[in-house]
């Protein structure tokens, strides 16, 4: 099924938030991020290479995350991203407004059914 405009807008606004949230506790590389997003959203949200990496680079350029090449034994060189202190603040802000937004939507939609 083709994604609707509504889906696309929703996804565009939320992917930054998702990536920041997934990096909150530990550094991760790009493939790991894409797999986590797909699995935790049960396939509803998928980030392909052509969207994920431009997004990561943009966040990095803004100084919200920082990437570093890491070599581990018996593994290939991978680029790991971690949340910067600025990114942590942004994440807090986004989380607060998301909770407020979702609450408001819920209140409205429940009210609609009442």
């Amino acid at each position: 099924m083709e994604p609707t405009l509504y889906d696309r807008e929703l996804k565009k606004g939320s992917t930054e938030f998702l990536v920041l949230a997934l990096l909150e506790h530990e550094p991760r590389h790009g493939y790991e991020l894409s797999k986590l997003i797909a699995s935790r959203s049960r396939g509803v949200v998928r980030l392909h290479v052509a969207s994920l990496y431009p997004l990561l680079y943009r966040l990095e350029r803004r100084g919200w995350i920082s990437g570093r090449w890491v070599e581990k034994p018996r593994q290939r060189r991978r680029r790991y991203y971690r949340l910067t202190p600025v990114g942590a603040t942004v994440l807090d802000d986004q989380r607060r407004s998301w909770v407020a937004f979702v609450g408001a939507i819920n209140r409205i939609t429940r009210l609609g059914h009442a």
């Binding site: 590389h29 790009g30 493939y31 894409s34 290479v49 994920l52 990496y53 290939r76 060189r77 991978r78 680029r79």
Partner: peptide, 11 residues
């Protein structure tokens, strides 16, 4: 960028 995306596609 090529290295990072290659890695991703390999995975």
């Amino acid at each position: 960028i090529v290295q990072e995306i290659t890695q991703h596609l390999d995975d």
